[in-house]
Simulated assay, not measured.
Amino acid sequence: MHGTNRKKRAPKPIISVLMPVRDASDTVKEAVESLWRQHFPSWELIAVDDGSRDDSAAILQACAAADPRVKVVRQPPRGIVAALTAAAGMASGQFLARMDADDISLPDRFGAQLEMFNRIPSLALCGTKVQLTGHGISCGYRRYEVWLNSLITPEDHARECFVECPIAHPTFMMPRIWYESAGGYRDTPWPEDYDLLLRIWQAGGRMAKPDAVLFEWRHRPQRLSQTDPRYAPEAFRKIKRHYLPGSDTPLYQWGAGEVGKLWLKDWQAEAKKGGLRPVAVVDINPRKIGRIIHGFRVIGPSELPPPGLCWIAVTVGAPGAREEIRDWLVPRGYREETDFLFLGIL
């Protein structure tokens, strides 16, 4: 009988894990082993060795020999976007997940994320809470960890997605259809993960996390986000201006402190090229009200137009300031995401 000796094809995995690897011989095996410990078994790993000069490729090949779910691609050093794009092009899973070669996915990660997609309609991107590990973690990174882990629901992520990237990139999981419809990863002058996330948000995709720490995120001084200018503060301001929602009402900036002044300089430079420019900048410091800072008049909150007649970009980053500003605006009828949005750093 024809075909009786043919080998059955292995079923396609549900999840394809995209892992770019560059000189990670000291951590990559531990990262792969954390995938082997996943309680949800239907996954494949597409590990792209991006020009490593150490033993990373040999370690990955040994992992592939031990488990056919591990697939290894080698390429010259082309960067993270090229590596991720190559991995996504080889992926066969319905969902694409991210992981770096120096991090640890805890055993319940994949199962918990898939449950979120089953539970929340139109969920387009799912992360997890994280635990930062490693040495020399700054207070700023600890604040970021606390903030990331405070965002759980789609409403949390939509409200805060212009403060910072609200999901840690190595914890991303998304349906392939959302990845492809958003255009995948792109080479840009700003962070590739934040760019993809904001395009998904712009298209109406919802974001959420399971309410549990499911990922150990290793902090290392040589990490790309610590060394590449695409992850510098000015790059984050640039991407936020690029994706800022349009409005038919005049723009006002709230905040003339150190962070706010950087934004005012950026608006001034953009205005010279025909870009958006705030009408004025709001501040509560009586010594600043009435002054001109970087070409913008400083006004008090009471001078703002009423709700519906202005759009307010809040660029305050001091601890507790967002809550105070929200407490001033909301009782007066200003609606978050409609009349005002927080852009300031943590």
Score class of each variant (00 low, 15 high):
256 A>H: 04
240 K>C: 07
252 Y>P: 02
214 L>A: 02
237 R>D: 09
223 R>P: 09
230 R>T: 14
230 R>L: 11
232 A>R: 11
234 E>R: 11
219 H>Y: 12
228 D>T: 05
256 A>N: 04
254 W>M: 03
255 G>H: 07
210 P>M: 09
251 L>G: 00
222 Q>K: 12
232 A>W: 00
221 P>N: 01
226 Q>G: 02
226 Q>Y: 10
236 F>D: 13
247 S>N: 06
247 S>Q: 08
219 H>D: 05
222 Q>D: 15
240 K>G: 06
254 W>E: 01
264 L>I: 08
226 Q>D: 11
210 P>E: 09
254 W>K: 03
259 V>P: 08
214 L>S: 07
251 L>R: 08
237 R>I: 05
221 P>F: 01
264 L>C: 06
242 H>L: 12
233 P>C: 05
225 S>C: 13
212 A>R: 05
229 P>A: 03
237 R>N: 09
261 K>W: 09
255 G>Q: 04
215 F>Y: 09
214 L>I: 01
258 E>C: 12
233 P>Y: 08
231 Y>D: 10
256 A>R: 00
234 E>D: 15
265 K>P: 05
265 K>Y: 10
222 Q>F: 14
223 R>G: 15
262 L>S: 14
257 G>V: 08
238 K>R: 13
265 K>D: 12
219 H>S: 07
251 L>T: 02
238 K>Q: 15
240 K>S: 05
247 S>E: 04
262 L>Q: 14
221 P>T: 09
230 R>G: 08
235 A>M: 00
222 Q>V: 14
257 G>H: 07
242 H>K: 13
255 G>I: 08
230 R>S: 11
229 P>S: 03
241 R>I: 11
240 K>Y: 06
216 E>H: 13
222 Q>L: 13
237 R>G: 02
248 D>K: 12
264 L>W: 08
255 G>D: 00
240 K>H: 06
260 G>A: 05
251 L>E: 06
237 R>Q: 02
227 T>W: 09
248 D>H: 13
220 R>L: 12
234 E>Y: 14
224 L>C: 10
243 Y>Q: 05
263 W>S: 07
236 F>V: 12
235 A>I: 02
233 P>K: 00
222 Q>N: 15
240 K>W: 04
250 P>K: 00
210 P>N: 07
218 R>C: 11
230 R>E: 10
218 R>L: 07
